[in-house]
């Protein structure tokens, strides 16, 4: 079965003492194997909420998330969230330690990933000695070692400067394609979405509904850029 995950009529409402906030309203879509999906929308439109729901960190208010059996989901956040008191290598082992999965095969996979993505010689360094781009790569490897089927990226490059953003984002998409993992990228950068993904879901303002969905079929990036811009900012 190609279908990894299906989101059906998903809604999420947050309750505080003062009010209730509807973040997501009746969202439905499917994720297939080798899908690279970008979710784009105004800030506060519930994009990160969707990732939290997909990863199981939060519970949905209504609707369903139907996952393929034994589906593994990796989650990367806005900042790299490396543990400063652990070395690069120890940071990468974190997921395996937690899932009690420190097998020989998994450890050699960690070594392979570190070697492949030029981090092996830094494996005993602490994160503070790494550049922003390297830190993101370590964070990515830490997520990849649990062998996820789908990777959730929550604006993972927003803390980097423009140059590094371009370099690291192309690094990351290459790694993800190499490792054959499906992707859901949350971003508010239209360029990034078009460059990295082949399906783009545009969210409306809160409470978010799916406003439009694009399949990027050719290299006419400007056309897609204009259309998405219109969706987001034209009244």
């Amino acid at each position: 079965m190609n279908n990894l995950l299906e989101v059906k009529n998903l809604s999420k409402t947050y309750y505080t003492k003062e009010k209730e906030i509807k973040a997501l309203d009746n969202i439905s879509f499917k994720i297939n194997k080798d899908d690279y999906i970008a979710i784009i929308g105004p800030s506060g439109s519930g994009k990160s909420t969707l990732l939290s729901l997909l990863s199981g960190n939060e519970k949905e208010t209504c609707g369903n998330i139907i996952k393929k059996d034994n589906l593994k989901i990796g989650y990367m956040f806005q900042s790299d969230l490396l543990f400063e008191w652990l070395t690069v290598y120890e940071n990468c082992l974190l997921g395996l330690k937690i899932s009690n999965d420190l097998t020989k095969e998994n450890i050699s996979n960690v070594i392979r990933l570190l070697k492949k993505y030029d981090l092996y010689e830094f494996k005993d360094n602490y994160p503070k000695s790494l550049s922003g781009g390297m830190r993101q790569r370590v964070a990515l490897i830490r997520t990849l070692v649990i062998k996820p089927d789908i990777l959730l990226l929550d604006e993972p490059f927003s803390k980097l400067d423009y140059q590094n953003r371009l370099i690291v984002s192309s690094d990351v998409i290459n790694i993800i394609k190499n490792e054959k993992i499906s992707l859901i990228l949350v971003t508010h950068d239209i360029n990034e979405a078009i460059r990295m993904c082949d399906r783009i879901i545009v969210f409306s303002k809160r409470p978010s509904v799916i406003k439009k969905e694009y399949i990027i079929k050719n290299d006419d990036y400007q056309k897609y850029y204009d259309m998405i811009w219109n969706d987001l900012y034209e009244k």
């Binding site: 989650y75 956040f77 974190l94 899932s99 649990i146």
Partner: peptide
């Protein structure tokens, strides 16, 4: 850091593991 807790939860960590790691 709440996000670090979220990260560990996304690996399936229980409360004791969050405390330990």
């Amino acid at each position: 850091d709440k996000n670090k807790i979220k990260l560990l939860q996304s690996f399936g960590a229980n409360k004791y593991q969050i405390y330990k790691y």
